[in-house]
Amino acid sequence: MDTITTQKAPHKIRDIQNHHMDSTIWDSFTFRDDDIIVASYAKAGTTWTQQIIGQLIFDGRTEPAMGQVSPWVDLRVPPPEVKLPMLEAQTHRRFLKTHLPVDALVFSPKVKYVYVARDGRDLMWSLHNHHYNANDQFFSVINDTPGRVGPALDRAPEDPVAYFREWLDGDGYPFWSLWENMRSWWAVRDLPNVLMVHFNDLKADMDGEIRRMAGFLDIAPTNWDAILDHCSFDHMKANADAMAPMGGALWEGGGATFINKGTNGRWQASLPAADSAAYEARSIAELGEECAAWMMNGRR
């Protein structure tokens, strides 16, 4: 399999710790040569990409459930002394999730990275649903367990436009910066162990994008019909509790809230044109025209 030399690989230069994340876990993580890391900002199609990769690895089988075997490594719960032995005990080809920018991640030349992106307006409407429908157990896990750094996470306002404005003005508040996440992965997009995937391209040609991922990951599955069926939104929605963390227990409505709409453009009905234009201008200023255009549209 193609790898890159250590000299060309990016290096971790900082840690990110907050109500959700603790990047220090990667300092103690033992990579395997065939590991797969799914990276994204958040709500960009991450779970969909994990489901695709799980289906490729297990050749269309529905067991084990993706939500049980593909954890978010830098989520600070459970703590490293619990999570790391669980990951070490996995015997299948591991596929794991991160929401870190590259410079806060231990980047291994041994493994494959699949980064999935989506227009920031689309992902923020999805993130609002995720945050607004979080239940008391969610906030207890995020805010009250030992190890939280910085302020607690408050509940989301009901209005997604107000939520979007606060996020844009606060450079990702109350989560983290989209711009630094996107910039960092765009900068390494040409490395041979990095594949850039876009939500729009998955929507436009799921079959073709899954085959592109399979080639990148050196996987040659045989049960294509089952893989395509199990990666469809209808299947994922019908089996949402198997896809969502903790079986969807952290959200009102369970996993069906976590696997919400699977569509783009919901912001268009409510986000004022001035706010949309401000987002687009900020995107170009932060990312440059090429990267901003890709994050908005994908390859198509």
Rank of each mutant, 00 (worst) to 15 (best):
P71S: 15
W72F: 05
W72R: 01
V73P: 02
V73L: 12
D74T: 14
L75V: 04
L75H: 14
L75S: 07
R76V: 03
V77I: 08
P78E: 12
P78S: 08
P78L: 10
E81S: 13
V82E: 07
V82L: 05
K83A: 14
L84Y: 02
P85C: 14
L87D: 01
E88I: 10
T91L: 13
T91N: 12
T91E: 13
H92G: 12
H92Y: 02
H92S: 15
R94G: 04
R94K: 15
F95P: 01
L96S: 02
K97N: 05
K97T: 09
T98E: 13
H99M: 07
L100K: 13
P101D: 15
D103L: 09
L105H: 00
L105V: 08
L105E: 12
L105I: 10
F107M: 13
F107A: 09
S108G: 04
S108F: 00
P109H: 04
K110F: 03
V111H: 04
Y113C: 08
V114A: 09
Y115D: 12
Y115C: 12
V116G: 01
D119H: 02
G120Y: 03
G120C: 08
D122M: 05
L123R: 02
L123E: 08
W125C: 09
S126P: 00
L127W: 15
L127E: 11
L127C: 13
N129E: 09
H130N: 04
H131M: 05
Y132D: 11
Y132M: 06
N133S: 11
N133R: 04
N133Y: 03
A134I: 14
Q137V: 14
F138H: 06
F138T: 05
F138K: 00
F139E: 14
S140N: 14
S140C: 07
I142G: 03
I142P: 01
I142R: 01
D144W: 00
V149N: 08
V149Y: 01
G150S: 13
L153M: 07
D154N: 08
R155M: 08
A156G: 01
A156L: 07
A156M: 03
P157I: 15
E158D: 14
P160M: 11
V161H: 06
V161T: 11
V161R: 01
V161A: 14
A162E: 15
Y163N: 11
Y163C: 08
F164H: 00
F164V: 08
F164C: 10
E166T: 07
L168N: 00
L168Q: 03
G170D: 08
G170N: 07
G170V: 07
G170E: 05
G172V: 15
G172H: 01
Y173G: 09
P174L: 12
P174Q: 06
F175L: 09
W176S: 06
W176I: 10
W176R: 04
W179N: 10
W179L: 12
W179S: 06
E180N: 02
E180P: 00
N181C: 14
N181D: 15
N181I: 14
M182R: 00
M182W: 00
M182T: 09
R183K: 10
R183Y: 02
